[in-house]
Amino acid sequence: MTIASSPVARPWRRRARSRSAINALINLVIAAFALAPILWGLSTSLKPTQDILVYPPQIVPERPTLEHYAMLFQTGIQTPIINSVIVSVGAVLLSLGIGAIAAYAIARLPFRGKTVLIFFIVALMSIPLPSLIVPTFTFLANVHLSNSLTGLILLYSAYQIPFVVWILYSYFLSLPIELENAALIDGYSRFQTLRKVVLPLSGPGLVASGLFVVTFAWNDFVVAVAMISSGESKTLPVAIYGYLGFYGRDWGPLTAAAIISILPVIAVFVFFQRYFLTGMTSGGTKS
């Protein structure tokens, strides 16, 4: 329609402009609603302790300081951060390894029962984790894997491989099959074809599923708090939960720890936004 751009249709244009002003206002409200708790936490984490409880509250810290962050690092928040990094990296490597091979088989290799397997994958993706933690703790304690990062890596992989398989399965299906056929004719085995032909072409699929696993492992609290109790294997969310009991109403260090936990996630999310959506629309629930 070209009416809006013709000079005769002035009222149209004015209406369009006021409409876009309203849209901008709504967008602002959405952003404020989503970000206010985070920005308020950031502001609190930058205030000296005596300014945190003043009324009326300062929206922007008047005397910004990093003392709470410094205090956290002096009291050893490095250990849980490193634990969270180890768990995240371990879970990504294990789930991408096992997941890629399984996804390739489902996408390209013949076997009976494939439909059943696909339904199992969707079912696995939708099992909510809080309902699993008691039996899982019972099990891990029996095989002496509770309270260990290895146990956590194995659990995270088990919970995330269905998502990895699902994302990579649809990605592999979208690749041209001719290249694989050529590789097979040249004498590559199926496994070599996957490793040397398919995976190098699957960057976006691997990034999407890898990010999904990393954010899950980095963010997870429910599984970790049930499996981990000792200080030296605590992951960052479990450590923050511990701070909640320890610092109580001392919100400076608490909000600082919260910001430390979410900054990397927000940074990754900003850079790789579209990959996140691939994982989210894949049919499961994450909690």
Binding site: I30, A31, A34, L35, P37, I38, T215, W218, N219, D220, F221, V222, P237, I240, Y241, A258, S261, I262, V265, I266, F269, V270, Q273, F276, S287
Partner: peptide, 13 residues
Amino acid sequence: AVALVPYVISMLV
């Protein structure tokens, strides 16, 4: 993307 931020950060936080 901004609206999704509360969803991508840790539930605990």
